[in-house]
Amino acid sequence: MIRYLLFVFFALVAFLGNAVAGEYQLDWHVPDEELIYHSCGCADSCWVAEVRQAKVEKLIIAKLRCDCEKLYFTDKTGVERVVAENCVDLNTDNKMDLIPKRIKQFQSHFNTPH
């Protein structure tokens, strides 16, 4: 019984920790990778979406971010590029569906294997 209660407690803490941090997992259909999104302000016009290795070390494979103005893409080499002068195309009602598509486009364009 104690083990069960501890399990429930730690599962709840982990869940609430992610919710408080504002991290959300988006659809990403690549084995052993996950796509995590979080907002950083500007009425959700400042945000970061990271493709991470799902296990061990959470290595960042790709990152797409908006700083309330410009759109940036970073591949796993760590090189960040301005890929758009604004984020208007992504900051829409279907942003969460567009982000994975845009990351895949940039990965193909910049030839970053995933």
Rank of each mutant, 00 (worst) to 15 (best):
H38D: 11
H38I: 01
H38T: 03
S39W: 07
S39C: 02
S39N: 13
S39H: 14
C40K: 13
C40T: 14
C40M: 10
C40Q: 14
G41H: 06
C42I: 06
C42E: 08
A43D: 11
D44H: 09
D44A: 02
S45T: 12
S45G: 09
S45A: 04
C46R: 14
C46S: 12
V48E: 14
V48I: 11
V48T: 15
A49R: 15
E50A: 06
E50K: 14
E50L: 00
E50C: 00
E50S: 13
R52H: 09
R52V: 13
R52M: 01
Q53V: 03
A54H: 07
A54P: 12
A54Q: 13
K55T: 05
K55F: 05
K55C: 02
V56H: 09
E57Q: 06
E57M: 12
E57R: 10
L59F: 07
L59Q: 07
I61H: 11
I61S: 05
A62I: 02
L64M: 01
L64A: 00
L64P: 11
R65I: 03
R65T: 04
C66Y: 04
C66R: 13
C66W: 05
D67F: 07
D67T: 09
D67C: 02
D67P: 15
D67H: 11
C68H: 08
E69C: 06
E69I: 09
K70G: 07
K70D: 06
L71I: 05
L71E: 11
Y72Q: 02
F73D: 06
F73S: 05
T74Q: 14
T74Y: 15
D75M: 01
K76D: 11
T77N: 14
E80W: 04
E80Q: 13
E80V: 03
R81E: 10
R81G: 02
V82K: 15
V82I: 12
